[in-house]
Design a protein around this nucleic acid. Structure first.
Lengths: 124, 124
DNA sequence: TCTTTTGTTATATATAGGTTAGCACACATA
DNA sequence: TATGTGTGCTAACCTATATATAACAAAAGA
């Protein structure tokens, strides 16, 4: 899987890594059991420090998207804690939708947007 | 409008201020034309520095939620740039929904969540 | 066995962001 | 005139981010 970092972005590098890997899983470019490059390999190919990759991997592990194995490296392994995920999504949506609501974005427009985004993901 | 800051939160104080004011507008606690406390007043009542409040106000002004007037203070004045707001919402939703999608949260569940959140806002 | 690679941990350094403080200015209001 | 306003500036402090370098134990392969 191709990973690209925008060094001019205001998003931290380790956050960009997280997002791209999560998008890879959602769009089924990455499947359960697939392996990601080792922290050193990915750091080399992308041109960043090992610890930055390690930080991204550690958070993805803690969030239940991958498992880290000294033998196999980083393996996609989704641990589904639906209650927690639902609460987190609600928390993230609350302020985003409020902002849109202030800007006169209607409930229907948001529903269309959700459908449009879900169509980007191959499962769901 | 009552503003409360969680000093133990990992969210920056000026971000908490932004969010609470935006939520105030969305829930119609704050209306167009209402005035917010001056940077010094709000800083005093909340117990934070003037510049922290000023940073929150400046960003809210730049995002088109308030206008700053030396005479009247900070006034709720929503500048609706719907195209920009739509793009921003889409950008914010993309990663949040992808994360939920990986956790087996269905399209229907997201629609329900959107309705649930929109019901919190009195207009929309 | 020996070597290499793995994730992990530790320390040090440099840069950027967040928060506070104090000061100053131009303007508005009373 | 006196006070409060937004705004700008500098300085200090702490944390977060990213880098560099080094070392470790566990596992893999030769």
């Amino acid at each position: 899987m191709l990973i690209e970092i925008d060094f001019n972005s205001d998003e931290a590098i380790y956050v960009q890594l997280q997002h791209q890997i999560i998008m890879g899983i959602a769009t089924e470019v990455l499947h359960e059991g697939d392996t990601l490059p080792s922290v050193r390999q990915l750091a080399d190919t992308v041109g960043i420090n090992m610890h930055t990759v390690n930080k991204a991997y550690s958070i993805l592990k803690q969030q239940g998207f991958i498992q880290l194995d000294r033998r196999k490296g980083a393996v996609i392994a989704i641990d589904i804690n639906k209650i927690h995920a639902h609460e987190e999504l609600k928390r993230e949506l609350r302020i985003a939708l409020a902002k849109g609501c202030c800007k006169n974005i209607s409930r229907e427009e948001v529903h269309e947007l959700v459908d449009e985004l879900f169509d980007e993901y191959t499962f769901g």
